[in-house]
Computed example of a mutant assay.
Amino acid sequence: MSKKSRRIVGAVILGVIVGLVATACGGGSSSDGAEVKWAFSLPTSWDPVTSRTGNDINTISLAYASLTRLDAEGNVEPSLAESWKYNGDGTAVTFTLRDGLTFSDGTALDAQAVKAFFDRGKTQDDSFLRDQLAGVAEVSADSATDVTLHLTDADYQIPYLVAGRTGAIASPTAAADPQKLSVWPVGAGPFTITDFVAEDHAYFEKNPNYWDADNIHIDHFELSVAPDPATLVAGVQSGSIDFATLPALQSKEAEAAGLDVTVKPSLAANDVSINLNKAPFDNPKVVEAFRYAFDRQAFVDVITNGLGSTTSQPFPDGYLAFNPEIEKLWNYNPDKASRL
Rank of each mutant, 00 (worst) to 15 (best):
V147E: 12
A213K: 06
D71M: 01
T44K: 11
F315G: 00
S140W: 00
A213W: 11
E73Y: 13
L267H: 04
D125Y: 02
S240K: 14
A198H: 03
E199A: 11
A137C: 08
W184I: 12
G106T: 05
V9Q: 13
L249W: 07
P280F: 03
F117G: 01
W184N: 12
W84C: 05
A321G: 01
L149G: 11
S224R: 14
L249T: 14
L181E: 07
F95P: 07
L320Y: 11
V93R: 00
G100S: 12
T68H: 02
F281R: 06
G239A: 05
W330N: 15
I57Q: 13
E73V: 01
L161N: 02
L259G: 07
M1G: 15
Q124M: 12
R7Q: 10
L20C: 06
N207C: 06
E205P: 02
V186G: 14
G106H: 01
V261H: 11
R339P: 00
T192N: 08
S266C: 09
F290N: 04
T311S: 15
D282Q: 02
S45M: 15
T310E: 10
I8A: 11
A163V: 01
T231Y: 03
G121V: 03
D228C: 01
E288F: 00
V225F: 06
T245M: 07
Q157K: 07
V49P: 04
S140N: 07
D99Y: 05
F294C: 01
A202S: 13
L42D: 08
F294T: 08
V136S: 08
S338W: 01
H220R: 14
P227C: 03
Y203E: 14
A256D: 15
P159Y: 02
T44L: 09
S238N: 15
Q250V: 00
S45W: 12
N323K: 00
K206Y: 01
D47F: 05
G27M: 03
P48R: 12
V300W: 00
Y332T: 01
